[in-house]
Design a protein around this nucleic acid. Structure first.
Lengths: 141, 141
DNA sequence: TTTGTTGTAATGTCAACGGTTACATCAAAA
DNA sequence: TTTTGATGTAACCGTTGACATTACAACAAA
């Protein structure tokens, strides 16, 4: 099972907006042609990023523009903005048998371990900003 | 998106086998009644764990038994045994546009960050053994 | 008012998961 | 040797979520 590509699409879109936005009007069509997905997918992504206060999108006249500073946007912010995961990364089987000593205590034993693992992932995402990626990207361009 | 419950089902099953195995014959039916899923789901899980060399399952006479020491089984071992993920945790959109400066370099910029995040998750799973969980469980029983 | 764009609903396809039935295979006890 | 109780596995189903796509209303600026 994988984390939805909405996440990498969102990161890609933001890089496009923040890096190319001065030169071009960043419409959903233009971004879509860079990411190589349907423009509607981009509009949905931008809608989430807008709701999270990361960018602004102009209906009518068109174009997405930065709101937050790239230094203040972490990969974790993007990951939560596009709703990769609704709470728990790990699925847990429902209704373990409370009559069984293992079933009765499985949550007590396992829950915190799963939370720790998820937290490790999310902390790592938290440690990277969009500005970090832009620095790297500007060297390559 | 979530990591399949095969993982927590496998951990639950192993705890049952390692903790209750001395007292009971651990058949797929018995484990299924503790986990509260269909016995076939358990048989599939046990089959994976057997292929990974963690347990032995006796066809015919029935019952699952430990092979590896609980100290030598990490949550990561279980996670890989049941194939939660086939390589990359993060899905990446295919074919970003190589004509675009962002599309051309998105992998160079993002891949290592995603790998780091995934590694953080997996290292955390690697740091917990089945024996750790058994210790906790035995206190609660 | 025309034009280009965004917002969003609706629909279709596809893959994965988990549930379930069915049955062949197997090993040990009777 | 037959019976019994398990496992191994194929087959099929229903559900869910992702992503693609079409369609069109709403909108803002030229």
């Amino acid at each position: 099972m994988k984390i939805t590509s909405r996440f990498t699409v969102a990161v890609h879109s933001l890089l496009a907006i923040y890096v190319l936005g001065k030169e071009y009007k960043m419409t959903s069509d233009l971004i879509a042609s860079s990411v190589n997905v349907n423009p509607v997918v981009i509009r949905r992504t931008l809608s989430s990023l807008k709701a999270a206060g990361i960018i602004d999108v102009k209906a009518g006249s068109g174009g997405a523009t930065p709101v937050k500073s790239a230094d203040d946007i972490t990969l974790y912010d993007i990951y939560t903005a596009v709703d990769c995961i609704d709470g728990n990364l790990f699925n847990f089987h429902e209704n373990p048998n409370p009559e069984c000593p293992v079933g009765k205590n499985i949550h007590a034993v396992l829950d915190s371990r799963l939370k720790d693992a998820q937290a490790a992932l999310e902390n790592e995402l938290e440690s990277v900003t969009l500005a970090d990626l832009m620095k790297q990207l500007n060297i390559l361009i």
